[in-house]
């Protein structure tokens, strides 16, 4: 089983982790968006490869969903939102890139330790995939908590979801229903968040979530 199949799967999943890292230090929204589109594209490739390797044609559907929605529709829509909000040139203060990156490295190490230990006897395909997927999920979460801008939080959430899909497709025998429902719920979440962005913008003239806290009279 080890051979080219494994190497390519490994390579694609590793690329996803790498792209997650790149997202962490992008302080410009448009650049971040591009990286995210690339992230989704690599995810689609990875899922497609899994479909080929596992000989599971329904995974092609998942790959297509990832490609169409995540790599094309969502980035395009998000880009339009950014442009309409007039924040495409804004530079976000990420705050301590070095620290964030160190935390990210720690998270990847943690996910390796956890998954590789737990799945001792499992298929190496699934093992590596799960470890990378957990890393992508944790990095997405890290992105969500380290950013202040609502748009970049949305992107963090999306890349977290990419990690989920990676995990789901890495395991053999995952029925299509699960993937479709996950993709669908993400779409719904995206729509809701998009609407929220505009509402926030209307009210507060900014998508910095710190404004919400100020509005609540909070001692953020």
């Amino acid at each position: 089983m080890r051979g080219l199949n494994f190497d390519i799967a490994h390579f694609l999943a590793g690329t996803l982790v790498l792209l997650s890292f790149m997202q962490l230090y992008q302080d410009r929204l448009t650049a971040l968006l591009h990286i995210f589109a690339l992230h989704a594209l690599v995810l689609a490739l990875s899922v497609g490869w899994q479909a080929y390797v596992q000989d599971a044609p329904h995974l092609y559907v998942t790959a297509a969903i990832a490609l169409v929605f995540k790599a094309i529709v969502i980035p395009v829509v998000l880009r339009r939102i950014i442009v309409r909000l007039g924040i495409h040139r804004e530079i976000e203060t990420v705050g301590g890139i070095g620290l964030t990156m160190l935390a990210g490295i720690g998270l990847v190490a943690l996910s390796m330790v956890v998954i590789l230990r737990v799945t001792g006897g499992a298929d190496p395909f699934a093992r590596e995939d799960l470890a990378f997927a957990l890393a992508v999920i944790l990095l997405g979460l890290l992105m969500m908590v380290s950013r202040r801008n609502a748009v970049s939080q949305v992107i963090g959430f999306m890349s977290l979801e990419n990690g989920l899909v990676l995990a789901a497709t890495g395991a053999k025998g995952m029925p299509l229903v699960v993937e479709i429902s996950v993709a669908f719920s993400i779409l719904i979440a995206f729509i809701v968040i998009g609407i929220f962005l505009f509402r926030i913008r209307e009210r507060f003239d900014t998508v910095d979530v710190g404004a919400l806290d100020r509005f609540r009279g909070d001692r953020a």
Partner: peptide, 9 residues
């Protein structure tokens, strides 16, 4: 009374 980001954290 935390902020959303702190809850996420």
């Amino acid at each position: 009374f935390l902020t959303i980001r702190r809850y996420l954290s």
